[in-house]
Amino acid sequence: MTRLRTAVATAVAVAAAALVGPHVVPVGEAAAATAASKTWDWGPIAEVGDWEQGQSTAGWQTWADGTGRVDIYYGQLAVDSGPAAFNQTATGDVVTTKTGAGHVRGRWELRVKAQQWAAARAYPMRLELVPAGTGPTACGATTVTLAKWTGFGSTTRFGIRQGASRWLSSVSLNNNNTFHLFGFELTDTTMTWFVDGQPRARLTAAEAPEAFPTAGLVPRMVLNGASGTAMTHTRLAADWIRYFTLDRAGRTVPATAPPTRSDAVSGVC
């Protein structure tokens, strides 16, 4: 297992392009921005998680029922399937959910990547917004999917689930140890999903008023293991997670196609 942060130069070069957090102030010109929060002028930042200088997982509920753990790995919030032994397979789920009341409206953005070792059955991974208080393994009545994919698979889905109805879109990404940015804007009239800074789907209240959440939402990161199955050792890590209010209007985001609706959905997040 490569425990040191790999491809540091590439990773931090991308990070530098996206830096807007409180711990650093860019000097001079930044490289091309890819974060939706920067591209579309979101602000102000109300909550930041970037674990830059020794922070712990405080403020996040951590949960694992197998070989995994949640920790801070080189400044990233990591859901890590384990186990400790090199090149061994994992079992169980690993979940972390932000504590607190969450936000009913606003903008969220995460910068994440996943690494894998010891090939077995690939973990499905999910980045979500769920109502505050949702249990670590619960697929509640409301789940905003910022991104979900399996292993190094490129098909990356995003959308929203409300009870038995689901609106879902997808995009193809290189998920092999590669950082991506996933953003979500939720107003009273529109919800928009962003991937690497660009809008990928939009759903309006006129199209589907029942889709709009009414509860305070919090981020959740999930490694979803198959019960009783040896899984690929996987680490899903967030370099940063930010929440922005809607106080700043921001730049106008062009309309995109709505996600596809399915009804009578059950048993999946």
């Binding site: 530098a16 830096l19 650093v24 930044a30």
Partner: peptide, 24 residues
């Protein structure tokens, strides 16, 4: 005080510096 946050690929040559918070 500034800190490097990006290096030229495969080198230790810094390509991007940021000010360390609280040091300006």
């Amino acid at each position: 005080l500034e800190r490097c946050v990006a290096y030229a690929s495969g080198t230790t040559t810094c390509t991007y510096w940021v000010a360390v918070e609280g040091s300006t």
